[in-house]
Design a protein around this nucleic acid. Structure first.
Lengths: 140, 140
DNA sequence: TACACTTTGTAGCATATGCTACATTCCCGA
DNA sequence: TCGGGAATGTAGCATATGCTACAAAGTGTA
């Protein structure tokens, strides 16, 4: 049987990776905010049941992004920290950009959450350029 | 600063709706481009197997967005046409906006495909305003 | 220590999307 | 009219994410 593309590659690429980034970013945020991250914190943040969180964390742990023990807190591995930092930067660019064109903070946060996964390097670079230029002409 | 809202659950919940919009928009595009839309056309466009297309079309037909007969072409109901028009407008706003801030057409089309589902009314309005203002100072 | 409450894990089910393999139908040219 | 290839449908499986219900472990307090 000749080399065949992985039948599930598309699913994983389209859904699971975005989820991984969202969770990793959330874990980092919660750790910063309250010192440690628990399953319950993630469930509240993502507005899903703790069951969903537990299962996703297992997958992230298998993938080397998350480190944890049963009934213990949720931590990030070096790779997870790396991903969290990149996600956070990207998120902040999109939020700042949306606010800059007149979107309220609440809506900017909301929309960025979904949009950030679809903003390519080129688009992020354009947003950055726009923010830099806007700084110059900004009224105050 | 980690007082971020919880929009993630919503984006997951709405994923099926995003799919509906993508397919409805694609059907309209294909009909315009080649006169009629077939399962095969959609499979090529979405880069999935015809099986996936068939199943999704069944759901859209159940939902009153798509009209079709076995082995026949794929059509849109009035509601489907309505959704397609709205999706198209939104898509065009996002593409025009991205191009305006310096993103290439190819990338703008690509990124808009994913971003458009996460742009709220408020964000779309801001993009529209930006495009109008840009018209004034940037002839073109 | 013991009991209640909180938190987390597990079992089992549902839906959405993806695939391959095979069955069926359609269409066109000989 | 017939036969074969293209298009479509169906069966069955896998992954991801969501849930409820129940089980087990941790935590605090009397």
């Amino acid at each position: 049987m000749p080399n065949r593309p992985n039948p599930f590659a598309k699913t994983r690429r389209d859904h699971a990776d975005e989820t991984a980034e969202d969770y990793v970013e959330a874990i980092a945020d919660i750790e910063i905010a309250s010192g440690s991250c628990r399953v319950k914190d993630l469930a509240e943040r993502m507005q899903v049941s703790h069951v969903t969180v537990t299962r996703i964390l297992s997958r992230l742990a298998d993938g080397g992004l998350v480190a944890r023990e049963p009934y213990g807190p949720v931590g990030l591995t070096p790779r997870g920290l790396e991903m969290a930092a990149a996600s956070r930067t990207r998120h902040e660019i999109v939020v700042a950009f949306l606010e800059r064109i007149g979107v309220s903070n609440a809506t900017a946060e909301h929309d960025a959450e979904g949009m950030e996964h679809h903003a390519s390097k080129e688009t992020l670079a354009a947003m950055r350029r726009f923010l830099s230029r806007a700084e110059d002409v900004r009224p105050g």
